[in-house]
């Protein structure tokens, strides 16, 4: 168990890594990476059974970042957890780096599924969860989806599969930061009510503030105790969380800060 205080600090470090990666890479997606930093801190430093020295261990818990463009947050968490050298983050999106714009399971230790084309991660997570059931393994599978991403029809095909096979070893987290590239979720193509949708697809649904460590901890605990059906945690978050000028700003979905902005961001994050 990692204390709440420590997890908060780790979430902050993940955010610092996000800014470092996107600034040095001069490209990437800071907004949605910052919104999931707290969730990743809890997953990688408390919740998941993972082995940085043996990243492919068969009994490990699996994680799928279905919203693959938020790779800076995943890479940052993996680096901090010891899967690879932290300095790699500074080479994010560089032609000589393994840290691709979107996660590549064959290039980066700790990445369990290659993602990037939105809407596909939940299907893969289902496959992992089904394999776990077939092999009588007790590992769990986690998948983070975006609230814009769930506009993809495949997500709902996959949700039916999660339900059909009673995947109680699967926990879906929807990063509900309410923004996508062209505007708010309501403006572009409302996926609301997200909780009712997942509930009607047979999921146990938990609504939380996804930037609040204690609520995330509690939700994962509840998910683990849920039997006979999958869980969906609808995590209300703030896009760009932690960097004042990025918070709730659609413009920070996919652009890198300039030097001045980088300095302000790092200062705000207490670096």
């Amino acid at each position: 168990m990692t204390s709440e205080k420590e997890l908060k600090e780790i979430a902050n470090k993940i955010r610092i890594g996000v800014i470092e990666a996107v600034y040095n890479g001069k490209s990437g997606h800071p907004g949605g990476s910052l919104s999931i930093a707290d969730i990743l801190a809890v997953l990688y430093f408390n919740e998941m059974n993972i082995y940085p020295q043996d990243p492919k261990a068969e009994n490990r818990d699996r994680f799928v970042l279905s919203k693959g463009h938020c790779s800076p947050a995943l890479y940052s968490a993996l680096a901090l957890r010891g899967f690879f050298n932290y300095d790699e983050l500074l080479k994010f999106r560089n032609i000589e780096s393994n840290l691709q714009g979107h996660p590549d399971m064959n290039k980066v230790p700790g990445v369990d599924m290659t993602t990037g084309s939105l809407g596909q991660g939940l299907s893969a997570a289902n496959g992992m969860a089904i394999a776990g059931k077939l092999d009588n393994k007790d590992y769990r599978v986690y998948a983070i989806l975006g609230d814009g991403e769930i506009e993809e029809g495949q997500i709902w095909e996959a949700a039916m599969t999660s339900n059909k096979y009673k995947l109680d070893n699967l926990c879906v987290i929807v990063d509900n930061n309410n923004l996508q590239i062209d505007g708010t979720i309501e403006e572009v193509m409302s996926s609301y009510p997200i909780d009712e949708k997942f509930r009607s697809f047979g999921f146990e649904v938990i609504n939380i503030n996804g930037n609040e460590i204690s609520e995330i901890l509690e939700a994962f605990d509840k998910a683990k105790k849920t039997k006979g059906k999958p869980t969906a945690i609808i995590a209300r978050t703030i896009k760009g969380k932690g960097v004042s000028f990025m918070e709730n700003q659609v413009g920070w979905h996919g652009k890198a800060p300039n030097e001045e902005q980088y300095k302000i961001a790092m200062k705000e994050l207490g670096y």
């Binding site: 068969e58 596909q120 299907s123 893969a124 496959g127 095909e157 599969t161 096979y165």
Partner: peptide, 28 residues
């Protein structure tokens, strides 16, 4: 029957599910 999965009329999900199974050393 335990190793057969009818994913329904959802080919995109079927391919993705197969991918996930393959990451766990199944051969779909």
């Amino acid at each position: 029957p335990n190793r057969f999965f009818d994913i329904g009329i959802a080919e995109q999900d079927m391919m993705g599910t197969a991918a996930g199974l393959a990451t766990c050393n199944k051969i779909p």
